[in-house]
Amino acid sequence: MGVAGQDEDQRPFVDGLFAVSAVLEDGSDIAGARQTAREFLTSVQAVHGLPVSTRAMGMVQLVVSELVTNARKYALGPCLLRLEVEGGAVQVSVWDSSTTLPSVRAADPERVGQHGLEIVMAVCQSFAVQREPVGKRIIATVVLADDPGGDAAGRRAL
């Protein structure tokens, strides 16, 4: 093994799972969560050689911001952010202690605020909510590279 993330032939080593976790304890951690996502994806690209499109970099930070904001707003105590890369996508997972499951409200252009989950679901390849022994976990997946045909990552033109 040569440089971290490459084999002797200098090919990117992408067979493994890359992940980072962070415990967030107050509202000021939202900017820190976005920074964690940015640094993680920069490392995934620079060290491990995986492509990360500009769009994906922005979308992951947006998803992290929305999910962590909701966790901080609606749950008591800390929340846990986990980012994992596998199979050309990053999975954003946010755990919090609240047992109340989120609900996406009906579209309403007159409503101010409370559009976070709508946004997350619009930009992600997949979205799931899991009950945990304590609280819940929200999981959203964003594809790291845009399609060669020009379609935005994870979406197909209609």
Rank of each mutant, 00 (worst) to 15 (best):
V3D: 13
A71G: 08
M1G: 15
G135Y: 03
D147K: 08
A33V: 08
R11C: 05
P51A: 12
I138P: 00
L83D: 03
T100A: 15
P133L: 02
D151N: 15
L80V: 14
I119F: 07
L101T: 11
R34N: 04
G113E: 13
R55E: 02
S28E: 14
E8V: 13
P51K: 09
V20P: 02
S97K: 09
I138Y: 04
L62N: 07
E25F: 12
Q114D: 15
R34Q: 15
L117Y: 15
Q114H: 09
V44Q: 01
D108F: 02
A157Y: 04
R72A: 13
L76N: 14
P148A: 10
V20C: 11
S103R: 14
R55S: 11
V63T: 12
D108K: 03
F40V: 09
L17E: 15
L67W: 02
Q91I: 04
D9T: 10
A140K: 02
V3Q: 12
Q6G: 00
G49V: 06
C79F: 10
V94F: 08
R55T: 07
P12N: 04
V44H: 01
G5V: 03
R105I: 10
C124V: 13
Q91G: 05
S98N: 12
G135H: 01
K136W: 00
E8M: 13
N70I: 08
E39G: 06
V104S: 05
A71T: 07
A19T: 13
V85E: 05
E118M: 09
R11S: 07
G16P: 01
R156Q: 12
M59Y: 02
G16F: 12
P102W: 05
R55I: 04
P148E: 13
L24T: 02
S97V: 00
T69P: 00
V68Q: 07
S65L: 04
R34Y: 00
L158Y: 05
V63S: 01
D151K: 00
A128R: 15
V129K: 02
A22I: 08
L67Q: 11
G135E: 08
Q6C: 11
K73H: 09
Q45G: 09
L83E: 07
V44N: 03
R55P: 00
L80K: 11
Q35R: 15
L158H: 07
A33K: 08
P51G: 09
S43P: 01
V85Q: 07
V52E: 09
A33N: 09
E39Y: 10
I138A: 05
D26P: 04
A106D: 12
